[in-house]
């Protein structure tokens, strides 16, 4: 399976778009980001918008600095943050509690939600946020246009630890209002997911990296929660 070549800034948009449209982070005008994601043009406006993701940007800078790459939106840097790649190994586990500058560190180890899992009032929402805000992976069952049926594994909480549950089917968004971020998908394609959106079609190497770094930070969090 060929993976489409795209630029680093556009890759960033594909992964950052969903929470931005929900109003959770980044600049207020989510429709502008959506338009960038549907095209290939990269300009100063896009770069400025990327810098306004205050949660992600310092990690991109950290990876870039360690790698000796000037542009934090270089494809390799963006991929390292969202999915993981060899550049994270160069940075090492230098963040608090042995974390690495990967999106799963931000979600599992930094967000307040993991500490709310055992809270009777907030626990259910906490699990939902942790599951949806991490970058998930899944396989396409059917592409029906703007929506795609995929098979993925949801995050579970048994009162003591977070884990991935059994395979389940979910419907996710590929495009809206005539704007399509990806071309048609085929059954069996691996895709990455953020909230209710498909981010990208990925190959097995990228899925493996995402699994690896997600599991690493999930373990850190489970170990920490076990001590609470």
């Amino acid at each position: 399976m060929a993976v489409a070549t795209t630029s680093g800034p556009i890759l960033f948009v594909r992964y950052a778009l969903a929470p931005n449209l929900l109003g959770y982070c980044g600049p207020a005008d989510g429709s502008a980001l959506l338009a960038y994601g549907a095209g290939a043009a990269v300009d100063d406006g896009l770069r400025e918008r990327a810098r306004q993701f205050e949660g992600a940007w310092p990690y991109l800078e950290m990876i870039a600095e360690t790698a000796g790459i000037r542009d934090p939106l270089d494809y390799r840097i963006v991929e390292a943050y969202w999915l993981g790649n060899a550049l994270l190994g160069d940075v090492g586990a230098r963040l608090k509690a042995g974390g690495m500058p990967h999106h799963s560190y931000q979600v599992f180890c930094c967000y307040p939600w993991a500490d709310l899992l055992g809270n009777e009032r907030a626990g259910q929402q906490a699990l939902h946020v942790l599951d949806q805000c991490r970058i998930r992976w899944g396989r396409v069952i059917a592409d029906v246009g703007t929506h795609v049926l995929v098979e993925s594994r949801a995050l579970t909480w048994d009162g003591r630890a977070l884990a991935l549950g059994p395979l389940r089917k979910e419907t996710v968004i590929r495009g809206t209002d005539g704007i399509d971020l990806l071309g048609p998908l085929s059954p069996g394609d691996w895709v990455t997911l953020h909230w209710q959106w498909i981010c990208d079609r990925v190959d097995l190497r990228r899925v493996t990296a995402l699994r690896k770094y997600s599991a690493y930070h999930l373990t850190l969090t489970n170990n920490r929660l076990a001590l609470v």
Binding site: L22, Y24, A28, R121, Q125, C133
Partner: peptide, 28 residues
Amino acid sequence: AGVVREINLALLDGPFVPGEYILIHSGF
């Protein structure tokens, strides 16, 4: 940040007073 949004307040005890500040994460 200058934009009025719908935020879920269910995880805190009310009542809430207009002008009061809250910390928001992921819509809550």
